[in-house]
Amino acid sequence: MRLLVILSPTDRWGTKTEYTRLRKFLHKDGYLRIAPEAYMRIVQNRKASEKHYRRIEEYAPKTGTVRLLRLTEKQYNNIYLVTGEADYQEKVVGINSHIML
């Protein structure tokens, strides 16, 4: 199961530091950056994803939006790349979804 975090920051004063804090937390917590404002992490099950939901809520900024999306491996494998190719990390994790990052 994969957990996607999608950020939509605002231009309000003071939000840049809040989003920087959230991005640093996501990086330390093992999330991969798959787009400029999208991060992904592999979780074992629904209960583990709910734990991460609560952890992200602690770091979530007061303005803008932070969206969390839970996907199964089968749903994630249906992603179709129009241009480019998957990153090295996505290739390795896609082959063996039990790698601990």
Rank of each mutant, 00 (worst) to 15 (best):
T63G: 05
I34M: 09
K28D: 12
I42N: 13
R54E: 07
I56M: 05
E37Q: 09
L71K: 05
L32M: 06
D87N: 12
R54V: 04
R2V: 04
E85A: 14
W13Y: 02
H52W: 07
I99R: 12
V43A: 01
L68H: 01
K62I: 03
Y59Q: 13
M40A: 08
N78V: 00
G94A: 02
L81G: 08
V66H: 02
I95Y: 14
S97E: 10
I42E: 09
T63S: 07
T83P: 07
V92S: 10
T20Q: 12
H27F: 09
R41D: 04
L32A: 05
P61Y: 01
Y76T: 05
Y76N: 10
Q75I: 02
E73R: 13
V66A: 06
K24Y: 05
Y19S: 06
E18D: 12
E85P: 00
L101K: 08
S8E: 07
A86F: 09
T10E: 09
K47A: 11
L7G: 04
T15W: 02
E57S: 04
E85Y: 12
L71S: 00
R41Y: 09
N78A: 06
Y31I: 03
K62N: 09
T10N: 12
S49C: 11
I56Y: 06
L3G: 01
D11V: 06
V66G: 04
R67S: 03
I42A: 13
F25C: 03
A86V: 08
G14D: 03
L68V: 15
H52V: 08
K28H: 09
P9R: 08
L26A: 07
R2L: 15
V82T: 03
I6N: 04
R33F: 00
Q89A: 14
A60D: 01
